[in-house]
Design a protein around this nucleic acid. Structure first.
Lengths: 147, 147
DNA sequence: ATGTAAATGATACCACGTCTCAATAAGCAT
DNA sequence: ATGCTTATTGAGACGTGGTATCATTTACAT
């Protein structure tokens, strides 16, 4: 069996390679982009009904700790969206009106990252950059917040 | 009564200026930094026990839509932390081991922000930049993840 | 093969956050 | 000030996402 490089990271960190973990990661990887926990739960049990809810959440926690995925803002106080961090980083714009997200790729943050590592003595593995604003469609519709 | 500039933003956007809203914002403003919804709930009812839970959550949603605060997910799938966005932006480093956060201030993202506005036709009001890594203390303790 | 500790699944459980709805208060016009 | 209109509120019931517990299973080392 070939092992996804991300699963290897998991094993290298001292965690066991289980089917539950592989399935959860597989689901997230195959479904590039944002997923809510409900969607993940759903897809996982479609692929392997024997996997319990608890394990899915435990795996999400674990993947988060390993900076493989990241929970991120959705709507106000609702449940998070999980986002894959392809090379340890992820960037998007989210529209505060309609919650649509636009992904973009170059951020030029490598320099800042290094500076911070020195300044604070930390070892950085990734980052998430979210911009907030109003998308084209919404600003044309002109809902609230026009001054 | 003098009105906080943030409350004014709220009113200018067409929302009424109520005690519930003022209290919630007041709590968040006075407690600079990160707060969970539980902490906010607690502080609010300490200041004014007549304010209901529902209104607090509604206000959090509203403030989020207005980009005055922002929920961020420091730990895995737990409840979000609400963060004030002083000038529309906020930056921190979060330790994936102990969940401690370190705030920093200059990010040099203004340039990128403008470029994105042009490229995607959006109007950006703020951003959140999170770095993930291992803090000094944790990497000395050397828990998991040493290669 | 066998042992052992980590991980799992089932389920009961809890808390966060939402919904509903009648009561209230903000803001405006007079 | 006064009254009108409508957004907003508080109370509480409700749903659901996520967690704790624990006996069972599984991964991995020897």
């Amino acid at each position: 069996m070939t092992i996804s490089p991300r699963l290897e990271r998991l094993r290298d960190a001292g965690y066991k390679l289980t089917t539950a973990r592989a399935t959860v990661l597989g689901v997230i990887e195959s479904h590039e982009g944002h997923m809510t926990s409900a969607e993940i739960l759903d897809e996982v049990s479609k692929r392997d009904a024997s996997i319990g809810r608890a394990s899915v959440f435990r795996t999400l926690d674990l993947l988060t700790r390993l900076a493989i995925i990241r929970p991120t803002y959705t709507s106000g106080s609702a449940t998070p969206n999980y986002v894959l961090m392809p090379d340890g980083h992820h960037h998007h714009i989210v529209c505060v009106q309609c919650h649509q997200t636009i992904e973009f790729h170059d951020c030029g943050l490598a320099v800042l990252s290094e500076r911070l590592e020195e300044e604070f003595g930390v070892k950085l593995t990734g980052h998430l950059l979210e911009f907030y604003g109003v998308c084209e469609a919404c600003s044309e519709a002109g809902v609230i917040d026009e001054e």
